[in-house]
Nucleic acid binder design. Structure first.
Length: 203
DNA sequence: AAAGCAGGCCCAGCTACACT
DNA sequence: AGTGTAGCTGGGCCTGCTTT
Protein backbone atom coordinates (compact mmCIF):
# COMPACT_ATOMS: atom_id res chain seq x y z
CA UNK A 1 0.00 0.00 0.00
CA UNK A 2 3.02 2.18 0.00
CA UNK A 3 2.77 2.95 -3.69
CA UNK A 4 0.30 5.57 -4.65
CA UNK A 5 -0.14 5.09 -8.35
CA UNK A 6 -1.96 8.16 -9.55
CA UNK A 7 -0.83 7.77 -13.15
CA UNK A 8 -3.69 5.42 -13.94
CA UNK A 9 -7.18 6.78 -13.60
CA UNK A 10 -8.67 5.13 -10.57
CA UNK A 11 -12.39 5.02 -10.61
CA UNK A 12 -13.85 6.08 -7.28
CA UNK A 13 -14.44 3.18 -4.96
CA UNK A 14 -17.96 1.96 -5.30
CA UNK A 15 -19.76 2.34 -2.01
CA UNK A 16 -21.01 -0.83 -0.47
CA UNK A 17 -24.69 -1.20 -0.10
CA UNK A 18 -24.92 -2.04 3.54
CA UNK A 19 -28.08 -3.28 5.09
CA UNK A 20 -29.26 -1.89 8.41
CA UNK A 21 -28.68 -5.03 10.40
CA UNK A 22 -27.35 -8.45 9.45
CA UNK A 23 -29.11 -11.54 10.77
CA UNK A 24 -27.60 -13.53 13.61
CA UNK A 25 -26.29 -16.27 11.35
CA UNK A 26 -24.64 -13.84 8.95
CA UNK A 27 -23.07 -12.03 11.88
CA UNK A 28 -21.68 -15.27 13.20
CA UNK A 29 -20.33 -16.30 9.83
CA UNK A 30 -19.32 -12.77 8.89
CA UNK A 31 -21.00 -13.18 5.55
CA UNK A 32 -23.02 -10.75 3.53
CA UNK A 33 -26.64 -10.54 4.53
CA UNK A 34 -29.21 -9.25 2.08
CA UNK A 35 -31.56 -8.28 4.87
CA UNK A 36 -34.44 -10.39 3.67
CA UNK A 37 -36.46 -12.89 5.71
CA UNK A 38 -34.97 -15.38 5.32
CA UNK A 39 -31.76 -13.96 3.94
CA UNK A 40 -29.88 -15.48 1.07
CA UNK A 41 -27.21 -17.28 3.07
CA UNK A 42 -29.67 -18.63 5.63
CA UNK A 43 -31.85 -19.86 2.82
CA UNK A 44 -28.88 -21.51 1.22
CA UNK A 45 -27.74 -23.26 4.36
CA UNK A 46 -31.31 -23.96 5.47
CA UNK A 47 -31.00 -22.42 8.91
CA UNK A 48 -33.42 -20.26 10.82
CA UNK A 49 -32.95 -16.64 9.89
CA UNK A 50 -33.33 -14.52 12.99
CA UNK A 51 -32.65 -10.84 13.33
CA UNK A 52 -31.59 -9.22 16.60
CA UNK A 53 -34.51 -7.45 18.24
CA UNK A 54 -33.53 -4.29 20.04
CA UNK A 55 -36.19 -1.71 20.65
CA UNK A 56 -35.54 1.68 19.16
CA UNK A 57 -36.06 3.23 22.57
CA UNK A 58 -32.91 1.52 23.73
CA UNK A 59 -29.85 2.37 21.76
CA UNK A 60 -28.19 -0.69 20.30
CA UNK A 61 -24.74 0.18 21.58
CA UNK A 62 -25.87 1.09 25.08
CA UNK A 63 -27.96 -2.02 25.36
CA UNK A 64 -25.14 -4.34 24.46
CA UNK A 65 -22.54 -2.41 26.40
CA UNK A 66 -24.63 -2.38 29.54
CA UNK A 67 -25.17 -6.09 29.45
CA UNK A 68 -21.53 -6.72 28.76
CA UNK A 69 -20.36 -4.31 31.42
CA UNK A 70 -22.65 -5.77 34.07
CA UNK A 71 -21.58 -9.28 33.19
CA UNK A 72 -17.92 -8.35 33.31
CA UNK A 73 -18.26 -6.62 36.65
CA UNK A 74 -20.14 -9.54 38.20
CA UNK A 75 -17.61 -11.91 36.80
CA UNK A 76 -14.77 -9.85 38.13
CA UNK A 77 -16.35 -9.86 41.58
CA UNK A 78 -16.67 -13.62 41.44
CA UNK A 79 -13.07 -14.04 40.41
CA UNK A 80 -11.86 -11.66 43.09
CA UNK A 81 -13.82 -13.54 45.66
CA UNK A 82 -12.45 -16.86 44.51
CA UNK A 83 -8.94 -15.48 44.57
CA UNK A 84 -9.49 -14.09 48.01
CA UNK A 85 -10.81 -17.43 49.22
CA UNK A 86 -7.91 -19.26 47.68
CA UNK A 87 -5.33 -16.99 49.21
CA UNK A 88 -6.94 -17.14 52.63
CA UNK A 89 -7.12 -20.91 52.47
CA UNK A 90 -3.51 -21.07 51.46
CA UNK A 91 -2.32 -18.80 54.22
CA UNK A 92 -4.27 -20.56 56.94
CA UNK A 93 -3.60 -24.17 55.94
CA UNK A 94 -0.03 -24.05 54.72
CA UNK A 95 2.42 -24.96 57.50
CA UNK A 96 5.57 -22.92 57.30
CA UNK A 97 8.55 -25.21 57.12
CA UNK A 98 11.94 -24.64 55.60
CA UNK A 99 11.03 -27.06 52.85
CA UNK A 100 7.97 -25.19 51.62
CA UNK A 101 8.76 -21.67 52.64
CA UNK A 102 9.06 -20.66 49.00
CA UNK A 103 6.74 -18.02 47.63
CA UNK A 104 3.26 -19.44 47.90
CA UNK A 105 2.40 -18.46 44.36
CA UNK A 106 4.59 -21.23 43.10
CA UNK A 107 3.04 -23.91 45.24
CA UNK A 108 0.03 -25.88 44.15
CA UNK A 109 -3.12 -24.30 45.51
CA UNK A 110 -5.38 -26.26 47.81
CA UNK A 111 -8.39 -28.11 46.55
CA UNK A 112 -11.16 -25.70 45.99
CA UNK A 113 -14.82 -26.41 46.52
CA UNK A 114 -17.28 -24.21 44.76
CA UNK A 115 -19.65 -22.21 46.93
CA UNK A 116 -22.94 -24.10 47.29
CA UNK A 117 -23.00 -26.06 44.07
CA UNK A 118 -26.45 -27.32 44.97
CA UNK A 119 -27.77 -23.83 44.54
CA UNK A 120 -26.73 -23.70 40.93
CA UNK A 121 -29.57 -22.00 39.02
CA UNK A 122 -31.20 -23.89 36.21
CA UNK A 123 -29.95 -21.54 33.56
CA UNK A 124 -26.38 -22.30 34.43
CA UNK A 125 -24.44 -25.12 32.90
CA UNK A 126 -24.02 -27.50 35.80
CA UNK A 127 -21.45 -29.65 34.08
CA UNK A 128 -19.22 -26.88 32.89
CA UNK A 129 -16.11 -26.43 34.95
CA UNK A 130 -13.29 -24.01 34.90
CA UNK A 131 -9.89 -25.54 34.76
CA UNK A 132 -7.08 -23.34 35.89
CA UNK A 133 -4.21 -22.99 33.47
CA UNK A 134 -1.16 -25.10 34.14
CA UNK A 135 0.93 -23.80 36.96
CA UNK A 136 4.67 -23.38 36.60
CA UNK A 137 6.43 -26.47 37.77
CA UNK A 138 10.10 -26.41 38.58
CA UNK A 139 11.15 -30.01 38.65
CA UNK A 140 8.33 -32.31 37.90
CA UNK A 141 9.05 -36.01 37.63
CA UNK A 142 8.70 -37.75 34.29
CA UNK A 143 5.05 -37.82 33.65
CA UNK A 144 2.89 -39.08 30.84
CA UNK A 145 -0.50 -37.82 29.84
CA UNK A 146 -2.07 -34.48 30.59
CA UNK A 147 -1.36 -32.80 33.91
CA UNK A 148 -3.83 -33.50 36.66
CA UNK A 149 -4.81 -30.70 38.99
CA UNK A 150 -6.82 -31.30 42.08
CA UNK A 151 -8.47 -27.93 42.04
CA UNK A 152 -11.50 -27.26 39.96
CA UNK A 153 -13.28 -23.98 39.98
CA UNK A 154 -16.90 -23.86 38.98
CA UNK A 155 -17.59 -20.59 37.27
CA UNK A 156 -20.26 -19.53 34.84
CA UNK A 157 -19.15 -20.42 31.33
CA UNK A 158 -17.96 -17.52 29.27
CA UNK A 159 -20.90 -17.74 26.90
CA UNK A 160 -23.14 -16.77 29.79
CA UNK A 161 -21.88 -13.24 29.33
CA UNK A 162 -24.70 -12.97 26.82
CA UNK A 163 -27.11 -12.80 29.69
CA UNK A 164 -26.84 -10.76 32.86
CA UNK A 165 -25.05 -12.69 35.53
CA UNK A 166 -27.01 -13.56 38.65
CA UNK A 167 -24.93 -14.62 41.62
CA UNK A 168 -25.58 -18.10 42.90
CA UNK A 169 -28.09 -18.20 45.73
CA UNK A 170 -26.36 -18.05 49.05
CA UNK A 171 -23.20 -16.73 47.53
CA UNK A 172 -22.22 -13.34 48.85
CA UNK A 173 -19.08 -11.86 47.42
CA UNK A 174 -17.00 -9.86 49.85
CA UNK A 175 -17.37 -6.14 49.90
CA UNK A 176 -15.22 -4.74 47.18
CA UNK A 177 -14.00 -1.24 46.78
CA UNK A 178 -15.02 0.41 43.52
CA UNK A 179 -12.98 -0.51 40.50
CA UNK A 180 -10.02 1.74 40.07
CA UNK A 181 -7.30 1.83 37.53
CA UNK A 182 -3.89 3.16 38.25
CA UNK A 183 -2.65 4.97 35.24
CA UNK A 184 0.69 3.84 33.99
CA UNK A 185 2.22 4.59 30.69
CA UNK A 186 2.41 2.03 27.93
CA UNK A 187 -0.58 0.07 29.04
CA UNK A 188 -4.24 0.10 28.18
CA UNK A 189 -5.60 1.05 31.55
CA UNK A 190 -6.47 4.54 30.39
CA UNK A 191 -8.54 3.03 27.62
CA UNK A 192 -10.41 0.89 30.10
CA UNK A 193 -10.87 3.83 32.41
CA UNK A 194 -12.27 6.06 29.72
CA UNK A 195 -14.55 3.27 28.57
CA UNK A 196 -15.81 2.73 32.08
CA UNK A 197 -16.32 6.42 32.68
CA UNK A 198 -18.29 6.74 29.49
CA UNK A 199 -20.42 3.71 30.14
CA UNK A 200 -21.17 4.67 33.74
CA UNK A 201 -22.28 8.10 32.64
CA UNK A 202 -24.51 6.47 30.06
CA UNK A 203 -26.26 4.24 32.56
C1' DA B 1 -15.86 -27.79 -4.87
C1' DA B 2 -18.49 -26.05 -1.37
C1' DA B 3 -19.00 -24.52 3.10
C1' DG B 4 -17.26 -22.62 7.15
C1' DC B 5 -14.09 -19.76 9.72
C1' DA B 6 -11.81 -15.70 11.02
C1' DG B 7 -8.60 -11.56 10.25
C1' DG B 8 -9.12 -7.27 9.28
C1' DC B 9 -10.79 -3.54 5.97
C1' DC B 10 -14.16 -0.20 5.49
C1' DC B 11 -17.61 3.08 6.65
C1' DA B 12 -21.54 5.30 9.10
C1' DG B 13 -22.53 7.30 13.26
C1' DC B 14 -21.11 9.47 17.21
C1' DT B 15 -18.37 12.53 20.26
C1' DA B 16 -15.02 15.96 21.55
C1' DC B 17 -12.83 19.88 20.54
C1' DA B 18 -11.45 24.19 18.23
C1' DC B 19 -12.86 27.99 15.92
C1' DT B 20 -16.02 31.69 14.56
C1' DA C 1 -24.97 28.49 19.36
C1' DG C 2 -23.43 26.90 14.94
C1' DT C 3 -19.99 24.77 12.06
C1' DG C 4 -15.97 22.07 10.72
C1' DT C 5 -12.80 18.50 11.64
C1' DA C 6 -10.48 14.62 13.67
C1' DG C 7 -10.64 10.56 16.25
C1' DC C 8 -13.11 6.60 17.97
C1' DT C 9 -16.26 2.79 17.76
C1' DG C 10 -19.39 -0.95 16.30
C1' DG C 11 -20.56 -3.78 12.97
C1' DG C 12 -21.10 -5.26 7.93
C1' DC C 13 -18.75 -8.05 4.97
C1' DC C 14 -14.55 -8.96 1.82
C1' DT C 15 -11.32 -12.26 1.26
C1' DG C 16 -7.90 -15.77 2.11
C1' DC C 17 -7.43 -19.93 4.43
C1' DT C 18 -9.04 -24.36 6.32
C1' DT C 19 -12.12 -28.07 6.68
C1' DT C 20 -15.41 -31.29 4.94
Amino acid sequence: MATDDRSTPIEPRKKRTKIVSACNECRRRKTKCNGEQPCKSCLKSAVECLYPTISHAEDKRNHLNRIALEAIEHRLQTIEHLLHTLLQGQLSTQPVTPANSKPSSLAAPPTFTAPSPNATPKNRHPTSTFHSPPLPRHSSPPHSGPPVYSHELRLPPIQDLDTPYKPTAGFHPPELSPLTFSHTQNDDSHVLLSFRKRKLSDL
